[in-house]
Amino acid sequence: MKRAALWILVAALVLLVLPQVLPGYQVSIATQILIFGVLAMSIDVLAGFAGRTPLCHGAIFGTAAYVVLYWTTVAGGGIFTGVALGVLAATALAAVFALLAIRTSGVYFLLLTLALGMIVWGVCLRWTGVTGGENGIRGLGRPEMVADHVTFYYVTLGVVAPVTLLMWRFVHSPFGLTLRGIRDSETRMRSLGYNVPLHLFLAFLASGFFAGIAGALYAIFNDYVSPSTVQLTQSVAGLLMAITGGIGTLLGAFVGAGAIILLENTVSAFTARWPIVLGITFIVIMIFAPEGIVGRIRLLRARMRRVSSP
């Protein structure tokens, strides 16, 4: 337990000092990693703990971004109300998706959530009067107080840290344990008297809430949103981050987000064929570490402990 506290302290220190040592652009990358880490965690809540792999979180994330930017530009509202409304919209959307999807599982759940996400994308693309269609919504510029990368990083960190703690508590609560029970055997949980659909519904709702927070942050970060923020590739990217980090590890999401975003950034500086390099990396990870980076490390450590203990 002492060891865990030490790790948390080290991580916190690194995250706090980071913007002081990195140049401006790298700070913006760090911010992006934090934001996508939250998105990947929200996916992990469903995929890793409830055993339901969703492909609609890009749409939930993007909906929050759309609402924030619509509220601050077209409607002329304030940023805080905008963020609140964005997160609310994301949660509401998640509620609708959940009602439609939780009775399915496995590949059916995957396909149903994929289709629901595509509907959102279609609406954003075609409802030109509100969403600006293909052109998207351009913001009025980041609010003055968070205009520079370093301040915005700290604000993001200030949001992401408690959110992470909250999610950690959430998945390790008795409720989270029930989710894991459902993941491992739905019929057993049912026969034990647990209301499985209700649990899944609430998990989906929480997941959507967290994805909404990430989306609202992303809206302020980019100050721009277009259909490509809600499209399928966004959902897939989030899922890949969760898988790369390690599904069911929660905090692995940050490792996954970091790995993918950094890889994208460095490789694309050297070659125009960077998507191929990215693809090969995923294949290698899936073959040699299907449990993800953090999952793999945990496994190795457990094995080492077993070897060292007599």
Binding site: Y25, S28, G136, Y224, S226, P227
Partner: peptide, 27 residues
Amino acid sequence: RRLVEQTKVDFLAGNLLANTGLAVANY
């Protein structure tokens, strides 16, 4: 962002799709 903030270019040019151009213009 990378070109402006890290590579420190003097100016930007290009892009093809309207939405990519609009996003950069906003930046």
